[in-house]
Design a protein around this nucleic acid. Sequence first.
DNA 1: GCTCGTTTGAAACGGTCGTTTGACTCCAAT
DNA 2: ATTGGAGTCAAACGACCGTTTCAAACGAGC
Lengths: 250, 250
Amino acid sequence: MPAGPFPPHAHLASRATLHAKPPPHATHEKLLLAAGEIFAQRGFKDATVREICEQADANVAAVSYHFGDKAGLYAAVLEYAYTVASERTPVEAFFAHAHTPEARLRALVELMFTRIVDDGRPSWHGVLMAREMVEPTPALDRIVAQAIAPMWERVRAIVREFLGERATEDDIDMCGNSVIGQILHYKHARPVITRIQSRSVYSREQVNAWTRHVAAFSSAGLRAARAEIDARPTSTTKRTSSAKRQGAST
Amino acid sequence: MPAGPFPPHAHLASRATLHAKPPPHATHEKLLLAAGEIFAQRGFKDATVREICEQADANVAAVSYHFGDKAGLYAAVLEYAYTVASERTPVEAFFAHAHTPEARLRALVELMFTRIVDDGRPSWHGVLMAREMVEPTPALDRIVAQAIAPMWERVRAIVREFLGERATEDDIDMCGNSVIGQILHYKHARPVITRIQSRSVYSREQVNAWTRHVAAFSSAGLRAARAEIDARPTSTTKRTSSAKRQGAST
DNA sequence: GCTCGTTTGAAACGGTCGTTTGACTCCAAT
DNA sequence: ATTGGAGTCAAACGACCGTTTCAAACGAGC
């Protein structure tokens, strides 16, 4: 246990019970910022509290005092990054003027690209989430419930618009995976992409080009998927296996 | 330095000079197999030589003796995994009966899915490569040159068939990214997919369904990309190539 | 000025990591 | 029988990790 009988990180247990005392102390916030940057760079396991505290001009004991332990600091960073990302990249702004399915798809692609390949500044929320996908920590369940699941429902809603009423849950999932898989690829495979595709520099203009491409590519894929779904024989009960005549257009 | 004056791992420097003496000793091979499995599970940094040696029924000093150090063992595992994967999943077999662009695309998707979500047995080559994409080690340059770049050229060749002569290098790269991004997503985002899409169990049948979907989705996306490319205004120099007025419906 | 809860600081603790040590076994060649 | 290199083993080394300790510094209320 830390020094004080009621250390600040005990607020994790009793959040809103105490009369509005979120600790806005300097060290607390400096640790949050430094930890966010280094966790995003190295991941939870490879990041060391010594490097975080060095960058925050704080003592190593400060992590234990303010956040309990390294995992508590990580959870606080995720919480902080989520609120910051929600404020800086509000979802409504991206979908405000999107009145057609194509426009909503385009807005979704742009939103995800913005959140994920946006470097610098306290915007490592997308980076931390992308890391959690690949090497999950015990905090993944909370992240999924808080951030990923709502976004995924939004993806599914847009995909459903394209696929129509006869689409199965598997159809929607696979098409949603195709859309966001294209986007996340630029994040996950970045070390390889920069080595193989020398023209890609992850600049603002390049990301805009990727956005246009992914939106157009996905739109065509979704329309083709709907055509195939509508061509399926209407069965009395639900059939998962596609044992039907594949009269492909080619 | 290890015990012997000419330890086995010196073969890294002088490969083919000595008259055909690859050490086929039991410990050497057991270490390779155990290390491949554990490196694929935990990644290079999180894998410990103690766990590897325990699984291989070998002493911790065996790593230093046979491979120099942990990085040398990792490099040997990559080399071994590459040859095993090339033998077990020969590229030619997948493209043998693919005589149309659609068939070649389908074969490519099937090949990559097979190599990447294929669990168990000494087939962790795709798993190790997927890991290197996300958290690269100093071995990434060699992997790119040896395995990824050739596969990427194959992807580009297939994409080029779809896009036609007027496609730019950026067109080909973006479309190639869209195809393999869909596939790799099922590998990279597996922890999230299994939590959100409860129907996905990564079974053989499920992977087959993903293969069919990604091939169809990509085929439609590529055809749409070609239509958009062909509808682009031709440059001032040359306009002979029959700019067919494809209905560029956006 | 004193008190007491809050926050910081240098140092150390216990643990795990990759790697090394040096004695040991085995076995083919002398 | 002896030699000497190849390979194995338990044990230890040094480095780094997260975390803890405890004294010192701080700052508002009396």
